[in-house]
Design a protein around this nucleic acid. Sequence first.
DNA 1: ACAATATTGCTACTCATTTTCAAGAACTTT
DNA 2: AAAGTTCTTGAAAATGAGTAGCAATATTGT
Lengths: 166, 166
Amino acid sequence: MSTYTSGSFKAELNEKGWRLTPQRQTILQVFQDLPEGKHLSAEELYSVLQGQGEKISLSTVYRTLKLMARMGILRELELAEGHKHYEINQPYPNHHHHLVCIQCNKTIEFKDNSILKVGLKQTEKAGLHLLDCQLTIHTVCPEALRQGWPSLLPSNWSCLRWHSLP
Amino acid sequence: MSTYTSGSFKAELNEKGWRLTPQRQTILQVFQDLPEGKHLSAEELYSVLQGQGEKISLSTVYRTLKLMARMGILRELELAEGHKHYEINQPYPNHHHHLVCIQCNKTIEFKDNSILKVGLKQTEKAGLHLLDCQLTIHTVCPEALRQGWPSLLPSNWSCLRWHSLP
DNA sequence: ACAATATTGCTACTCATTTTCAAGAACTTT
DNA sequence: AAAGTTCTTGAAAATGAGTAGCAATATTGT
Ligand SMILES: [Mn+2]
Ligand SMILES: [Mn+2]
Ligand SMILES: [Zn+2]
Ligand SMILES: [Zn+2]
């Protein structure tokens, strides 16, 4: 549930010398209406907009995604090979992380508060300013395994190797 | 400290119907000789190879990086905008994560065993096969904040603190 | 409403990565 | 060890996500 009203969005834009445009409002609305666990790439967002009859150019889509990510309104994710995905950036307690099947790109979200604590601790220790903290778990799903992925897995590369943790 | 001898590398390649070539051996060696905390992009690896007098084409560099990442020998990281970085993929206790300044891309490594535990727990819970688990902490330097990040920065501005590093 | 300037929608462009394909090299089988 | 098979390489061309340039347009502050 995003906390951005069109008013607060405008205020935040203007504060940086930027402007509220119908295109930006529309794109923010698309993300706010997005079902939980859904992420959009630039091309996917462009399709959604076209499906709604909105005439926003692909350039503007790219520019707006980048702008809103820098503002901290959107979160930029590397969930698939070759292009980024975006979602509304929600603070605790909705902050979450992702499991991704690198074969079919199926994504599962999960929450774990300890991750953010680690992020804060390490960021403080390094004297930096925390922007985001993303745990991405690369996996292959059983379906992918059945479809031949195992032939690409070396004998000594198995999740079993991790079971020897202290 | 990698566990790959040229013999075990060959065995693992052959097991999948692939071949040990001088190019692949050389590239593995470069990663094994890389200092702790250093990561290489495809272009950077290509430069290193040229500096060593090795005549390996950029195509082969890209192909080898991808192959070795799929084999689990290398880890593919998203540490900078626009291109990937690679490092030797080392299991516990050398498994680690990264803090990255999104302005100058300087990277700091850190270890935290709890992350891997979270990764294992979530992967099991989802019934998937774990390949890798990467916590990436996005930050900006204090210098960038002082300069007015994110709106008042010239596109070529870079955090000064890292420029004096070796 | 006006002036200043930020944004849009084109199009052309960049550049990391992939593909194509013929020549050469590594395993496998005589 | 030579021959056969298949994989790999290098060079060049292609791909494709994302960006830059620019004139027209829209938003903001006065
Ligand atoms: Mn998500
Ligand atoms: Mn590293
Ligand atoms: Zn899958
Ligand atoms: Zn920095």
